[in-house]
């Protein structure tokens, strides 16, 4: 342990950054929690759920803030680092779900920023973006759950439900 520490200290800044960057690819917990929190807070905002507005309005604040800042600071860095793994993965399933995740993440993120910065003002583009955000984010949540199954933060829940990875 001591030798390792000494070794790290001897690395230059670029190497240390690279090491951190590579390590980030395996630190899925924060990004995954953020994603699920966004999905969970987004659900009551769907019109079909008819949630009470007094609840929705604060949920909207949380969703918007987490989406705006959490996506950039937590999800995007993780995924940028993590995608290196899936590109090299020998498992076609992970490569496939990884690709889908990447596309959905792009759509969800872009549409989310569009909605918060410009908005759905009732025009065709606004409606399209709104629908895209809704559908892509639902899909993203499901795909990520499956993609991250074995290492997911939800593993305790899956186990409790008898669905845990063996």
């Amino acid at each position: 342990m001591t030798a390792m520490s000494v070794g790290h200290e001897s690395l230059d800044l670029a190497q240390r950054c690279k090491a951190r960057w590579q390590a980030l690819a395996y630190r899925n917990r924060t990004a995954e929690w953020t994603l699920y929190a966004l999905a969970f807070s987004g659900l009551p905002l769907i019109a079909a759920f008819s949630a009470d507005w007094q609840w929705q309005r604060w949920d909207l604040v949380g969703h918007a803030l987490l989406g705006t800042f959490g996506f950039i600071t937590l999800i995007l860095p993780f995924w940028s680092s993590h995608r290196r793994l899936l590109l090299r993965s020998r498992k076609s399933f992970l490569r496939m779900t990884g690709r889908i995740t990447e596309v959905l993440l792009l759509v969800t993120g872009a549409s989310g920023y569009y909605l918060i910065l410009w908005g759905n003002r009732g025009g065709p583009l606004g409606n399209l973006v709104h629908q895209a955000h809704l559908i892509a984010s639902l899909g993203l949540t499901l795909v990520v759950m499956r993609h991250a199954w074995r290492w997911s933060v939800l593993q305790p829940l899956w186990k409790r439900l008898g669905l845990g990875a063996r």
């Binding site: 507005w53 309005r57 909207l60 918007a64 909605l115 918060i116 908005g119 759905n120 009732g122």
Partner: peptide, 28 residues
């Protein structure tokens, strides 16, 4: 009336954010 957090605020930043919320989810 269905108000959005910040939309009535005297603080310009909060008001700006309130408007963003209205535009993000305008149905209410």
């Amino acid at each position: 009336r269905a108000t959005y957090p910040g939309e009535d605020s005297n603080n310009a930043l909060f008001r700006w954010f309130g408007k963003r919320l209205i535009q993000a989810k305008p149905q209410a």
